[in-house]
């Protein structure tokens, strides 16, 4: 189990949710995204192209590369919290 998100991650989560809503033109408000729900398919309902868009935005904004061969892709996109944790550990900007 993941430890409970720290306040820093909580802020980052909100920021990433804003980025996603903006980049993907989501109809949901960023505050309404359940941080524990899966991002791909069921949950937020994103498809593979949306995942690509997130990877591009995250690379540009935080300098974190999400690659195709990242074995933990499913973990990274398993929830907003997981994505925020992944970025928090590796961000260079």
């Amino acid at each position: 189990m993941q430890p409970a998100a720290s306040p820093v991650t909580r802020d980052l989560e909100r920021e990433i949710a804003d980025l996603m809503v903006q980049a993907l033109n989501l109809t949901v408000a960023s505050a309404d995204i359940d941080p524990a729900a899966p991002l791909y398919r069921e949950g937020l309902g994103l498809d593979s192209i949306d995942i690509l868009e997130i990877a591009l935005v995250v690379s540009k904004r935080y300098g974190v590369e999400i690659k195709a061969d990242s074995e933990n892709n499913h973990q990274i996109f398993s929830s907003l919290t997981a994505l925020a944790d992944f970025i928090a550990e590796r961000r260079t900007k």
């Binding site: 791909y40 593979s48 995942i51 690509l52 990877a55 999400i66 690659k67 061969d69 892709n73 996109f77």
Partner: peptide
């Protein structure tokens, strides 16, 4: 393989 999560990331690579 399309239709799974990292498909587009693979195409990008």
């Amino acid at each position: 393989e399309l239709g799974h999560m990292p498909a587009m990331l693979e195409i990008r690579a």
